[in-house]
Design a protein around this nucleic acid. Structure first.
Lengths: 130, 130
DNA sequence: GCTTCATGTTATAAAACATAACATGAAGCC
DNA sequence: GGCTTCATGTTATGTTTTATAACATGAAGC
C-alpha cells in the first residue's frame, strides 16, 4: 500500500473540476495560490493542475477561513506543520520494521553473497536514505 | 470504507489528462466510446469527463487489444461480465456480515425504541434493498 | 473617512476540446 | 492484384475553458 499517496498527489485535475469539488470560485483558488497556500502544477500549456491532496487542502483552507483565520494565519499553520515534519525527518526514529529489515538485508548482500543471514549488529547508525 | 468506489467513479478528469495517464490518443479514446466500450460523463459545456475507473478500463482495453481482440470482442467481454453481475444481484446471497448486522439493527429500531436487542429471528427473507 | 483584505467582475488572448470529414496502412477475401 | 473493413492519423472549424491583469466593492478596523 505505497501507491496511495502517489495517487493522491497526482496532479490531474483542471481548475473547473476543483471548483465543483470545493465550491470555491476560480478567483478564490488562484488567490490562495498567490498567498502561498497551495502550489498546483502546470501543464505544458500553462494550465493549473491539481491533485486530490490539493483539493483536501483547499477544503481545509475553507474551514480555517470559517474559523476566522486570515491568509497569514493559515500560512503560518502550514509553515509550522512543515517545520515539524522537517524535524522528524532529521531524527533516527521513524524507521518502520520494514525499513529495518531492508537495511539489514542490504547490508547482508553487501557483506558478500546470498548466504543465510546470521544474527548481527548494524555497524552504522540507522538512518533513512534520502 | 465505502467511499472508495465513489471516489473511483467520480468523473473529474478531462480527456487530456486521460491521454497522459493511458498513453492513448484522443482519437483512440473517442473511438472506443463510439464503439460502446466506455461511457464518460459530460460537463455543462459538453466536455468529456472521466473517472479513475474509466482510466483503468481504458488500460484494460489496451491489454485486450494487445491480446489481439477487436472492438466487438472486447465489447463482448464486458457485456458478459455485466450479465454475470446482474445475475448475482438477483440472488439472496452476497450479503456481508455488515449487511446482516444493519438489517437486524433496522428491524430492531422499527420494532420499537432503543431497547437492548435480544436474540431474534428475521421475519422476512434477507435481501439487499436497491 | 481611509486602508486593507478577500472576493467579484470584466476584458483579452491562448489552450483544450468537440465534431466531422478525409486519409491511410494492415489484414482478409475474392 | 483489386476491394473492403478496421483502427487510427490528420486537418479544419467552432465552442468552451483557462490564464492574466486591471478595476470594482463590501466589510472590518483604525
Amino acid at each position: 500500500m505505497r501507491g496511495k499517496e502517489l495517487r493522491r498527489s497526482l496532479s490531474v485535475l483542471p481548475i473547473g473540476t476543483v471548483m465543483k469539488l470545493t465550491s470555491l470560485t476560480a478567483r478564490q483558488i488562484r488567490y490562495y495560490e498567490s498567498q502561498k497556500l497551495i502550489f498546483p502544477q502546470r501543464s505544458d500549456g500553462n494550465r493549473r493542475l491539481y491533485s486530490l491532496a490539493d483539493v483536501d487542502r483547499l477544503l481545509e483552507i475553507k474551514d480555517y477561513l470559517d474559523d476566522g483565520l486570515n491568509m497569514a494565519g493559515i500560512r503560518e499553520v502550514y509553515d509550522q506543520k512543515q517545520r515539524e515534519s522537517e524535524q522528524r525527518k532529521n531524527q533516527d526514529h521513524q524507521l518502520t520494521d520494514d525499513d529495518v529489515r531492508k537495511i539489514l538485508h542490504d547490508e547482508f548482500l553487501q557483506a558478500g553473497g546470498l548466504k543465510t543471514p546470521s544474527a548481527q549488529q548494524p555497524q552504522a547508525p540507522l538512518q533513512k536514505p534520502l
